[in-house]
Design a protein around this nucleic acid. Structure first.
Lengths: 164, 164
DNA sequence: TATATATATTACATATATGTACTATCTAGG
DNA sequence: CCTAGATAGTACATATATGTAATATATATA
């Protein structure tokens, strides 16, 4: 049985008490929250043996997914969905671990270029099999059609949120 | 244009570099993360004038959605999707603000009952119109059929995650 | 050139979240 | 009863995230 049932029941009572309460959007927001927490926790547990956490993993993978393994700090913040103040702290840690390096930018001397080191690439390639296994386990027996539909609907929902 | 495009492009490059990388589950997980951050930030901004933040709001609403406005700490943690260590801190703050009260439980003296005060209920009913407006804005022009389908697919996804 | 405005990054204070260990209480089996 | 093991809640240390302000550089315009 899903952990979500109690939450859903409480939203139903809320609707009784306050009939204007829009049940469906509220359920979606709650589901997103539950799913996010679970995904986040699972990823952290899987990554711990490799000495990094979920946000650090996200940064590494955004660099790994870029030609040249390099991004400016602001680009990295946008790509990973982190606030820029967070990027400084996280990239400091990754530098200390020797996984990325900071380089001054020639084109615009305000900018800092963050680039994966050889050790960074090697670490990523060492944990990728575990990451793939986790992602496949998380998708479980969702059918490709369902996955595609879920992706489409989530994109539409995100577009709504950003429309404001 | 969506903020998600750069992320999606980087996942595509990752798939080129590591063909076993399961693109679709990865996209879903990223979308969830982006949506969650946005929802969380919007809710915090809306709630600030009322002197509470998103997690505190969640706790208050779980109590509001329960007969008798009361739950034990563990029930509240499950309903709100918070770790139990967090519940102590958050409920301390809500007690300090006079919005909830702690009561010893007769049935099991290990348990603590958390119950909304009259001020707590009054605060909830004062911000509910703003909450409803925000939720409706977030759902935007999603059709009821799409919303229902998204709910169904998210529930299936959550069930997968919890199946392990 | 000089000045105003915008952008990129960071430092630091503060806010928020989690893990671990501890206390008190309960339950079950001898 | 009594003890062993389970459960509820919390305190405290630590980890993680954010807001604000400060610094340096770039760009536009008079």
């Amino acid at each position: 049985m899903s952990s979500f049932l109690p939450t859903e029941q409480r939203l139903a009572i809320t609707c009784q008490r306050h009939p204007a309460f829009p049940r469906d959007p509220a359920v979606l927001v709650r589901l997103i929250k539950h799913i996010y927490k679970r995904v986040h926790d699972d990823a952290n547990a899987m990554l711990r043996p490799y000495g990094i956490n979920h946000p650090e993993y996200n940064l590494l993978m955004m660099l790994y997914g870029t030609e040249g393994y390099a991004l400016h700090a602001t680009e990295l913040a946008d790509a990973a969905g982190e606030k820029s103040a967070n990027i400084t702290r996280l990239t400091n840690e990754l530098c200390d671990k020797g996984l990325i390096a900071r380089e001054a930018s020639d084109e615009d001397r305000r900018k800092v270029t963050l680039v994966l080191t050889a050790e960074g690439v090697a670490l990523i390639e060492s944990f990728l099999p575990d990451v793939c296994a986790l992602l496949e386990r998380q998708a479980g027996d969702m059918q490709p059609r369902e996955t595609a539909q879920l992706e489409r609907l989530l994109k539409k929902f995100l577009a709504q949120l950003e429309r404001e």
